[in-house]
Design a protein around this nucleic acid. Structure first.
Length: 352
DNA sequence: AACGCGTGGCA
DNA sequence: TTGCCAAGCGT
Protein backbone atom coordinates (compact mmCIF):
# COMPACT_ATOMS: atom_id res chain seq x y z
CA UNK A 1 0.00 0.00 0.00
CA UNK A 2 1.62 3.30 -1.08
CA UNK A 3 1.82 5.57 1.93
CA UNK A 4 3.17 8.46 -0.09
CA UNK A 5 -0.26 9.80 -0.92
CA UNK A 6 -1.35 10.15 2.70
CA UNK A 7 -0.17 13.76 3.22
CA UNK A 8 -1.71 14.90 -0.06
CA UNK A 9 -5.05 13.31 0.73
CA UNK A 10 -5.06 14.72 4.22
CA UNK A 11 -4.16 18.23 3.06
CA UNK A 12 -6.85 18.13 0.39
CA UNK A 13 -9.37 17.20 3.06
CA UNK A 14 -8.02 19.94 5.34
CA UNK A 15 -8.32 22.59 2.64
CA UNK A 16 -12.06 21.90 2.52
CA UNK A 17 -12.86 21.05 6.13
CA UNK A 18 -10.39 23.08 8.20
CA UNK A 19 -11.97 24.66 11.24
CA UNK A 20 -11.98 28.44 11.60
CA UNK A 21 -10.39 29.15 14.96
CA UNK A 22 -9.41 32.45 16.62
CA UNK A 23 -5.69 31.63 16.44
CA UNK A 24 -5.70 30.34 12.88
CA UNK A 25 -4.80 32.59 9.96
CA UNK A 26 -6.35 32.25 6.49
CA UNK A 27 -4.65 29.78 4.18
CA UNK A 28 -1.41 31.14 2.81
CA UNK A 29 -1.02 33.84 5.50
CA UNK A 30 1.94 33.98 7.86
CA UNK A 31 1.09 33.11 11.48
CA UNK A 32 2.40 35.29 14.32
CA UNK A 33 4.65 33.10 16.51
CA UNK A 34 3.38 34.84 19.66
CA UNK A 35 -0.21 33.97 18.85
CA UNK A 36 0.63 30.42 17.88
CA UNK A 37 2.60 29.99 21.10
CA UNK A 38 -0.15 31.49 23.26
CA UNK A 39 -2.81 29.27 21.72
CA UNK A 40 -0.68 26.12 21.91
CA UNK A 41 0.06 26.60 25.62
CA UNK A 42 -3.63 27.16 26.35
CA UNK A 43 -4.61 24.13 24.28
CA UNK A 44 -2.41 21.72 26.23
CA UNK A 45 -4.87 19.13 27.60
CA UNK A 46 -7.63 21.69 27.15
CA UNK A 47 -10.54 21.81 24.71
CA UNK A 48 -10.87 24.32 21.88
CA UNK A 49 -14.18 25.38 23.37
CA UNK A 50 -12.65 26.26 26.73
CA UNK A 51 -9.66 28.04 25.23
CA UNK A 52 -11.34 30.40 22.76
CA UNK A 53 -12.58 32.99 25.24
CA UNK A 54 -9.32 32.97 27.23
CA UNK A 55 -7.28 33.35 24.07
CA UNK A 56 -9.24 36.44 23.00
CA UNK A 57 -8.97 37.92 26.47
CA UNK A 58 -5.21 37.41 26.67
CA UNK A 59 -4.60 38.73 23.18
CA UNK A 60 -6.65 41.87 23.81
CA UNK A 61 -4.86 42.56 27.07
CA UNK A 62 -1.35 41.48 26.07
CA UNK A 63 -1.13 41.79 22.27
CA UNK A 64 2.53 40.86 22.01
CA UNK A 65 5.27 39.11 23.96
CA UNK A 66 6.69 42.39 25.21
CA UNK A 67 3.36 43.35 26.78
CA UNK A 68 3.02 39.94 28.43
CA UNK A 69 6.58 40.14 29.75
CA UNK A 70 5.73 43.48 31.37
CA UNK A 71 2.70 42.04 33.17
CA UNK A 72 2.73 41.03 36.82
CA UNK A 73 2.61 37.30 37.40
CA UNK A 74 -0.40 37.61 39.66
CA UNK A 75 -2.32 39.39 36.90
CA UNK A 76 -1.49 36.59 34.47
CA UNK A 77 -2.61 33.99 37.01
CA UNK A 78 -5.85 35.88 37.63
CA UNK A 79 -6.55 36.05 33.89
CA UNK A 80 -5.82 32.31 33.64
CA UNK A 81 -8.13 31.43 36.55
CA UNK A 82 -10.64 28.76 35.54
CA UNK A 83 -8.59 27.33 32.68
CA UNK A 84 -6.72 24.83 34.86
CA UNK A 85 -3.14 23.50 34.98
CA UNK A 86 -1.89 26.74 36.47
CA UNK A 87 1.79 25.94 36.04
CA UNK A 88 1.14 26.77 32.39
CA UNK A 89 0.35 30.38 33.29
CA UNK A 90 3.51 30.77 35.31
CA UNK A 91 5.62 29.14 32.61
CA UNK A 92 3.94 31.32 30.01
CA UNK A 93 4.91 34.44 31.90
CA UNK A 94 8.44 33.21 32.55
CA UNK A 95 8.92 32.32 28.87
CA UNK A 96 7.61 35.73 27.80
CA UNK A 97 10.23 37.41 29.96
CA UNK A 98 13.00 35.26 28.51
CA UNK A 99 11.92 36.00 24.94
CA UNK A 100 11.48 39.72 25.60
CA UNK A 101 14.58 40.30 27.69
CA UNK A 102 17.11 37.74 26.49
CA UNK A 103 16.07 37.01 22.92
CA UNK A 104 15.27 40.52 21.74
CA UNK A 105 11.54 39.84 21.62
CA UNK A 106 11.84 37.10 19.01
CA UNK A 107 10.84 33.52 19.54
CA UNK A 108 13.37 30.85 18.56
CA UNK A 109 12.56 29.78 14.99
CA UNK A 110 13.34 26.09 15.46
CA UNK A 111 11.74 23.32 17.47
CA UNK A 112 15.06 22.74 19.19
CA UNK A 113 15.27 26.36 20.30
CA UNK A 114 11.63 26.58 21.33
CA UNK A 115 12.03 23.44 23.42
CA UNK A 116 14.33 25.31 25.81
CA UNK A 117 11.58 27.70 26.92
CA UNK A 118 9.58 26.82 30.05
CA UNK A 119 6.25 25.20 29.26
CA UNK A 120 7.30 24.10 25.78
CA UNK A 121 7.83 20.38 25.39
CA UNK A 122 8.13 18.10 22.40
CA UNK A 123 4.61 18.53 21.08
CA UNK A 124 4.41 22.31 21.48
CA UNK A 125 7.87 22.89 20.01
CA UNK A 126 6.93 20.86 16.96
CA UNK A 127 3.58 22.59 16.59
CA UNK A 128 4.92 26.14 16.84
CA UNK A 129 7.87 25.52 14.56
CA UNK A 130 5.66 23.86 11.96
CA UNK A 131 2.77 26.33 12.11
CA UNK A 132 4.71 29.59 12.51
CA UNK A 133 7.93 28.73 10.68
CA UNK A 134 7.02 25.85 8.36
CA UNK A 135 9.77 23.72 9.81
CA UNK A 136 9.31 20.08 8.84
CA UNK A 137 8.31 18.90 12.30
CA UNK A 138 5.62 16.49 13.42
CA UNK A 139 3.44 17.69 16.30
CA UNK A 140 2.37 14.64 18.25
CA UNK A 141 -0.60 15.40 20.43
CA UNK A 142 -3.22 12.84 21.42
CA UNK A 143 -5.12 13.41 18.15
CA UNK A 144 -2.09 12.87 15.94
CA UNK A 145 -1.05 9.84 17.99
CA UNK A 146 -4.48 8.29 17.61
CA UNK A 147 -4.65 8.91 13.85
CA UNK A 148 -1.14 7.55 13.24
CA UNK A 149 -1.67 4.57 15.55
CA UNK A 150 -4.74 3.61 13.54
CA UNK A 151 -3.18 4.26 10.13
CA UNK A 152 -0.36 1.86 10.94
CA UNK A 153 -2.32 -0.38 13.32
CA UNK A 154 0.22 0.17 16.09
CA UNK A 155 -0.83 -2.06 18.97
CA UNK A 156 2.07 -1.28 21.26
CA UNK A 157 0.47 0.12 24.45
CA UNK A 158 0.73 3.84 25.18
CA UNK A 159 2.88 5.60 26.19
CA UNK A 160 5.51 3.09 25.07
CA UNK A 161 4.35 3.50 21.47
CA UNK A 162 5.14 7.23 21.37
CA UNK A 163 8.57 7.02 19.68
CA UNK A 164 7.21 4.62 17.08
CA UNK A 165 4.24 6.88 16.34
CA UNK A 166 6.44 9.95 16.12
CA UNK A 167 8.72 8.23 13.64
CA UNK A 168 5.78 7.25 11.43
CA UNK A 169 4.43 10.81 11.51
CA UNK A 170 7.78 12.49 10.97
CA UNK A 171 8.29 10.43 7.84
CA UNK A 172 5.02 11.80 6.44
CA UNK A 173 5.55 15.53 7.08
CA UNK A 174 5.18 17.39 3.76
CA UNK A 175 6.26 20.90 2.79
CA UNK A 176 3.11 22.32 4.30
CA UNK A 177 4.22 21.15 7.73
CA UNK A 178 1.98 23.51 9.72
CA UNK A 179 -1.13 22.59 7.79
CA UNK A 180 -0.24 18.92 8.09
CA UNK A 181 0.02 19.18 11.88
CA UNK A 182 -3.29 20.98 12.14
CA UNK A 183 -4.91 18.64 9.64
CA UNK A 184 -4.00 15.63 11.80
CA UNK A 185 -5.57 17.36 14.78
CA UNK A 186 -8.73 18.34 12.92
CA UNK A 187 -9.07 14.83 11.55
CA UNK A 188 -8.59 13.36 15.01
CA UNK A 189 -11.13 15.76 16.44
CA UNK A 190 -13.82 15.46 13.76
CA UNK A 191 -13.41 12.02 12.16
CA UNK A 192 -10.85 9.80 13.87
CA UNK A 193 -12.41 10.21 17.31
CA UNK A 194 -11.59 8.03 20.33
CA UNK A 195 -15.04 6.41 20.26
CA UNK A 196 -17.22 5.73 17.24
CA UNK A 197 -14.81 7.10 14.64
CA UNK A 198 -16.53 8.22 11.43
CA UNK A 199 -14.41 6.03 9.17
CA UNK A 200 -17.06 6.33 6.47
CA UNK A 201 -16.12 10.00 6.01
CA UNK A 202 -12.38 9.58 6.46
CA UNK A 203 -10.14 10.69 3.59
CA UNK A 204 -7.54 8.14 4.72
CA UNK A 205 -9.87 5.15 5.02
CA UNK A 206 -8.18 3.30 2.16
CA UNK A 207 -4.80 3.72 3.89
CA UNK A 208 -5.89 2.78 7.40
CA UNK A 209 -4.64 -0.61 8.55
CA UNK A 210 -6.71 -0.51 11.75
CA UNK A 211 -9.91 0.13 9.80
CA UNK A 212 -9.03 -2.64 7.38
CA UNK A 213 -8.68 -5.05 10.29
CA UNK A 214 -11.69 -3.64 12.12
CA UNK A 215 -9.68 -2.78 15.21
CA UNK A 216 -9.91 1.02 14.97
CA UNK A 217 -11.78 1.27 18.28
CA UNK A 218 -9.11 -0.73 20.10
CA UNK A 219 -6.25 1.47 18.88
CA UNK A 220 -4.30 3.12 20.38
CA UNK A 221 -4.04 0.65 23.26
CA UNK A 222 -4.31 2.33 26.64
CA UNK A 223 -3.97 0.89 30.12
CA UNK A 224 -6.97 1.59 32.36
CA UNK A 225 -6.53 4.29 34.96
CA UNK A 226 -6.58 3.70 38.67
CA UNK A 227 -9.68 4.84 40.51
CA UNK A 228 -9.28 8.26 42.02
CA UNK A 229 -9.16 8.41 45.81
CA UNK A 230 -11.58 10.64 47.70
CA UNK A 231 -10.32 13.36 50.04
CA UNK A 232 -12.37 15.45 52.42
CA UNK A 233 -11.88 18.62 54.38
CA UNK A 234 -13.29 21.90 55.67
CA UNK A 235 -13.25 25.36 54.07
CA UNK A 236 -13.77 28.66 55.83
CA UNK A 237 -15.51 31.57 54.16
CA UNK A 238 -15.19 34.68 56.31
CA UNK A 239 -17.13 37.77 55.32
CA UNK A 240 -16.90 41.27 56.75
CA UNK A 241 -19.61 43.92 56.89
CA UNK A 242 -18.87 45.15 53.37
CA UNK A 243 -19.16 41.64 51.98
CA UNK A 244 -15.42 41.28 51.45
CA UNK A 245 -14.10 37.71 51.72
CA UNK A 246 -10.85 36.54 53.30
CA UNK A 247 -8.48 34.87 50.84
CA UNK A 248 -5.02 33.38 51.27
CA UNK A 249 -2.41 32.52 48.67
CA UNK A 250 -1.42 28.90 48.10
CA UNK A 251 2.23 27.77 48.09
CA UNK A 252 4.12 28.35 44.84
CA UNK A 253 4.50 24.62 44.16
CA UNK A 254 2.09 21.74 43.81
CA UNK A 255 -1.67 21.76 43.44
CA UNK A 256 -3.14 25.12 42.36
CA UNK A 257 0.25 26.73 42.96
CA UNK A 258 0.22 30.46 43.72
CA UNK A 259 -3.53 30.67 43.36
CA UNK A 260 -5.92 32.18 45.91
CA UNK A 261 -8.40 30.35 48.15
CA UNK A 262 -10.40 30.83 51.33
CA UNK A 263 -8.58 29.33 54.34
CA UNK A 264 -8.85 25.54 54.26
CA UNK A 265 -8.23 22.76 56.73
CA UNK A 266 -6.11 19.73 55.81
CA UNK A 267 -7.61 17.04 53.58
CA UNK A 268 -8.04 13.50 54.86
CA UNK A 269 -10.27 10.48 54.59
CA UNK A 270 -13.11 11.93 56.61
CA UNK A 271 -14.63 15.31 57.28
CA UNK A 272 -13.45 16.81 60.55
CA UNK A 273 -16.02 16.98 63.31
CA UNK A 274 -17.41 20.45 63.96
CA UNK A 275 -15.16 20.70 66.99
CA UNK A 276 -12.10 19.70 64.98
CA UNK A 277 -13.05 22.03 62.15
CA UNK A 278 -13.29 25.00 64.49
CA UNK A 279 -9.76 24.28 65.58
CA UNK A 280 -8.70 24.48 61.93
CA UNK A 281 -10.44 27.83 61.34
CA UNK A 282 -8.19 30.85 60.64
CA UNK A 283 -9.56 32.70 63.69
CA UNK A 284 -12.17 32.23 66.40
CA UNK A 285 -15.65 33.31 65.38
CA UNK A 286 -19.20 32.07 65.18
CA UNK A 287 -18.54 29.63 62.36
CA UNK A 288 -21.64 28.00 60.93
CA UNK A 289 -21.57 24.92 58.77
CA UNK A 290 -23.46 25.31 55.52
CA UNK A 291 -25.85 22.59 54.45
CA UNK A 292 -24.46 20.40 51.69
CA UNK A 293 -20.92 20.20 50.37
CA UNK A 294 -18.68 21.16 47.50
CA UNK A 295 -17.52 18.36 45.22
CA UNK A 296 -14.73 18.74 42.72
CA UNK A 297 -12.79 16.29 40.60
CA UNK A 298 -9.07 16.77 40.08
CA UNK A 299 -6.95 14.71 37.74
CA UNK A 300 -5.84 12.27 40.40
CA UNK A 301 -8.29 12.60 43.26
CA UNK A 302 -11.80 13.71 44.18
CA UNK A 303 -12.36 16.37 46.75
CA UNK A 304 -15.32 17.05 49.01
CA UNK A 305 -15.39 20.05 51.28
CA UNK A 306 -17.78 21.20 53.96
CA UNK A 307 -18.04 24.96 54.05
CA UNK A 308 -18.07 26.97 57.26
CA UNK A 309 -19.14 30.61 57.20
CA UNK A 310 -18.59 33.49 59.62
CA UNK A 311 -19.70 37.10 59.48
CA UNK A 312 -17.35 39.39 61.33
CA UNK A 313 -18.05 42.94 62.42
CA UNK A 314 -14.38 43.79 62.44
CA UNK A 315 -11.64 42.13 60.39
CA UNK A 316 -9.62 39.94 62.75
CA UNK A 317 -5.84 40.01 62.68
CA UNK A 318 -5.06 37.07 60.42
CA UNK A 319 -3.03 35.96 57.45
CA UNK A 320 -4.46 36.77 54.00
CA UNK A 321 -6.31 39.55 52.21
CA UNK A 322 -9.90 40.68 52.29
CA UNK A 323 -11.18 40.90 48.74
CA UNK A 324 -14.31 42.91 47.94
CA UNK A 325 -17.16 40.91 46.48
CA UNK A 326 -17.03 42.94 43.26
CA UNK A 327 -13.37 42.00 42.78
CA UNK A 328 -13.78 38.27 43.28
CA UNK A 329 -14.57 37.80 39.60
CA UNK A 330 -11.13 39.06 38.62
CA UNK A 331 -9.21 37.30 41.40
CA UNK A 332 -6.84 34.37 40.87
CA UNK A 333 -9.44 31.91 42.13
CA UNK A 334 -9.48 28.42 40.62
CA UNK A 335 -12.86 26.94 39.83
CA UNK A 336 -12.96 24.70 42.89
CA UNK A 337 -12.44 27.71 45.16
CA UNK A 338 -15.16 29.65 43.38
CA UNK A 339 -17.47 26.78 44.17
CA UNK A 340 -16.46 26.99 47.82
CA UNK A 341 -17.15 30.72 47.98
CA UNK A 342 -20.43 30.35 46.12
CA UNK A 343 -21.47 27.68 48.58
CA UNK A 344 -20.41 29.86 51.50
CA UNK A 345 -22.31 32.87 50.21
CA UNK A 346 -25.18 30.70 48.93
CA UNK A 347 -24.65 32.04 45.46
CA UNK A 348 -24.80 30.59 42.04
CA UNK A 349 -21.28 29.86 40.81
CA UNK A 350 -21.83 32.48 38.11
CA UNK A 351 -22.01 35.06 40.89
CA UNK A 352 -18.37 34.49 41.79
C1' DA B 1 9.79 6.64 34.04
C1' DA B 2 5.82 7.33 36.44
C1' DC B 3 3.36 10.62 38.60
C1' DG B 4 1.34 15.27 39.75
C1' DC B 5 -1.16 18.68 37.73
C1' DG B 6 -7.68 21.37 36.40
C1' DT B 7 -11.58 21.66 34.14
C1' DG B 8 -15.81 20.88 31.53
C1' DG B 9 -18.31 18.29 28.04
C1' DC B 10 -20.04 14.07 26.75
C1' DA B 11 -22.11 9.30 26.53
C1' DT C 1 -24.42 9.51 37.92
C1' DT C 2 -19.98 8.13 36.76
C1' DG C 3 -16.09 7.61 34.02
C1' DC C 4 -13.59 9.07 30.05
C1' DC C 5 -11.26 12.24 27.64
C1' DA C 6 -8.72 16.78 25.67
C1' DA C 7 -3.77 20.79 20.86
C1' DG C 8 1.28 17.86 27.51
C1' DC C 9 4.87 19.45 30.61
C1' DG C 10 8.02 19.20 34.56
C1' DT C 11 10.26 16.49 37.69
Amino acid sequence: MPATRIPAKLLAWYDVHRRVLPWRVPAGRRADPYRVWLSEIMLQQTTVQAVAAYYRKFLARWPDVKALAAAKEDDVLAAWAGLGYYARARNLHAAARIVARELGGRFPATAEGLRTLPGIGGYTAGAISAIAYDEKQAAMDANAERVIARLYAVTTPMPKAKPELHAHAQALVPLRAGDFAQALMDLGSAICTPKNPACRNCPLKADCLAARRGIQEQVPVKVPRMARPLKRGAAFVARDRTGAVLLVKRPDKGLLASMLQPPLGPWGEKFPSVRAALAQAPFAAKWKKRIGLVRHGFTHFELEMEVYVADVAKRPQTKGKWIAMAKLGDAALPTVMRKVIAQGLSLDKSGV
